[in-house]
Design a protein around this nucleic acid. Structure first.
Lengths: 158, 158
DNA sequence: ATACTTGCAAATGATTTGCCAGTGT
DNA sequence: ACACTGGCAAATCATTTGCAAGTAT
């Protein structure tokens, strides 16, 4: 796998809907899988496997990281989950629930925003014109310096 | 460090010019450093530290990977070198010699292209309009599907 | 001479894998 | 019942670090 995920996103808007997706793929719905999904639904942004494994810092029972990785990979293969790289360090996983998300990261302040793809359609058109590529910013974010940091002359993260 | 490099690019178009840059920064020009730079100059694209350490598969004497990493980091800190992430796996390092480069990657065939920033100015303008960010595609590439792969219906890398 | 560098080994962080016991269907 | 999963330990990959010995200036 270069970078991309294999299947189109699956829109499971609720925990139960996600459970159904798992079952409908012929996969088993174990306690571990339920917890992973629950953590993903409870999160406000993409999570590292580590953070899921610690049950969002104790909010949920702890899991084996290896199992978390295995399940995230499984979920990714059926389009339920995607992962992004927000800078160096561990990848971050999120549900594709309300459709794909694309990311924008300020390298100066470290702030990351998730956007619905429609907001980047002009960017996509410009990329297409310049390179022929049909671009997607869901695996690697658009990296740059945000307006605020630019004004304050910030260039790199502390 | 989030993602970015610290200093503006240094244009050393020849090996000797690069040596001078190293010296002029008050750094020592060791045999190892000379070899790393030589490998980078001999390369056609960005290299992994591993590949530099093996002397481009035997074309040059082998080096310690740890030293290679240390030197690449040093060179990066003075703007002589930058590294990109082309998909998963090891980062790839290249000279900034002829100015910054930005990257475009097809996630279906794995093909990566390096472009002079000017070719992406329209993209940058679109990103600015959509997000306020001043974007750089030199650390994370623009990822998407190229025209050829799109026509052939390819979606993910073998 | 002396501070900067290297080599080598060991540590770290992220992710994967093997294997056998456990369990969802 | 039986194939799919989980736990746990160990392996792997990319990168970093500690420290004593070597060397550029």
């Amino acid at each position: 796998m270069t970078v991309s995920s294999l299947r189109s996103p699956v829109h499971a808007d609720t925990l139960d809907a996600a459970f159904d997706v798992v079952r409908s793929e012929g996969l088993r719905l174990s306690a571990t899988r339920r917890m992973v999904l629950q953590a993903l639904f409870a999160a406000d942004g993409p999570l590292t496997a580590e953070r899921i494994a610690t049950g969002l810092d104790g909010r949920f029972p702890p899991l084996e990281v290896a199992s978390v990785y295995r399940n995230l990979e499984t979920f990714e293969s059926i389009g339920l989950v995607r992962h992004v790289h927000l800078g160096h360090g561990a990848g971050r996983y999120a549900l594709t629930r309300a459709g794909e998300r694309e990311y924008v990261l300020c390298e100066a302040c470290g702030d990351a925003r998730a956007l619905p793809p429609a907001e980047l359609d002009d960017v996509r058109a410009a990329v297409r014109a310049a390179t022929g590529l049909d671009a997607r910013f869901s695996h690697f974010p658009i990296v740059g310096v945000c307006a605020t940091c630019r004004e304050e002359g910030r260039r790199a993260h502390p």
